[in-house]
Design a protein around this nucleic acid. Structure first.
Lengths: 138, 138
DNA sequence: CTGCATCCCCGCCGATACTG
DNA sequence: CAGTATCGGCGGGGATGCAG
């Protein structure tokens, strides 16, 4: 869900806005899309949920989410920190330990995520059924 | 956010589950991830919102969301139909017209989306500020 | 322990052209 | 009007190895 755009179209169009449900959507700088980019990644929402109950260190997160690679763990954490969801605190021990915790912004997002999680759990079966029905040979 | 996995790792691992916030997350078949895949695409959520007020035809959607290509419009609509969010009704006129509308599942998702949209609008500035602060040269 | 660098595959998405 | 087909770029994300 990138906001990327080549220069040609960028030069032609100017601030196209779609008004949907009374909400103006700036196609080129859409808040919804922007947030979706942040938490739509493979591990991002899981990461925020993991820190809901308190700070965790890198290796703790690694153990909590068994299937993530170091690479993606590092990258996901950096992305979320960059967008203000996470704090990163380095303790100069030997060897060093790094603790991650939710910011106020991160905490404020938890209820949103909860609504999403609840709906997903409740409707996942229906979705899977719809999918297999659709894929069934006509 | 694909649930894809090569056979080697699939054979090795068996039903790893991470318990986060009291909710068990089946890493390999995670409802949250599955739903996120559905509506995390570039146009998907916008499409659902567009149909919130009532059914629309293909060309109407095209006009409503000016920057989408035919290809992505078709594909997005098919994906959402496949997962049960949308109905697709063909009227055998000349030339044919096709109408898209939300299913019950699609309607039930609107409140979830609204929570998400509201939060995004409210916190977009904070996120952008966090981002530029993070990107600022140390 | 925490992280970065590299290689590489694959799927999203755009642009363009063509069909009933 | 409502699609389908094809090509191609770009980025997400996994595997592996190295570093402080």
């Amino acid at each position: 869900m990138g906001t990327a755009m080549n220069k040609a179209t960028a030069a032609v169009k100017g601030e196209r806005v779609a008004v949907i449900c009374g909400v103006p959507f700036d196609i080129d700088n859409c808040p919804v899309r922007d947030v979706m980019d942040n938490i739509g990644g493979k591990w991002n929402s899981l990461m925020i949920l993991s820190l809901a109950d308190g700070p965790l260190r890198f290796s703790q997160l690694r153990r909590l989410i068994p299937d993530i690679s170091q690479r993606m763990l590092t990258q996901t954490l950096r992305d979320l920190q960059r967008d203000g969801y996470l704090n990163r605190t380095v303790y100069p021990t030997q060897p060093p330990s790094v603790e991650y915790s939710l910011t106020d912004l991160g905490h404020s997002f938890l209820p949103v995520l909860k609504v999403f999680v609840d709906w997903s759990l409740e409707n996942h079966d229906a979705i899977r059924k719809a999918r297999t029905a659709f894929d069934a040979p006509a």
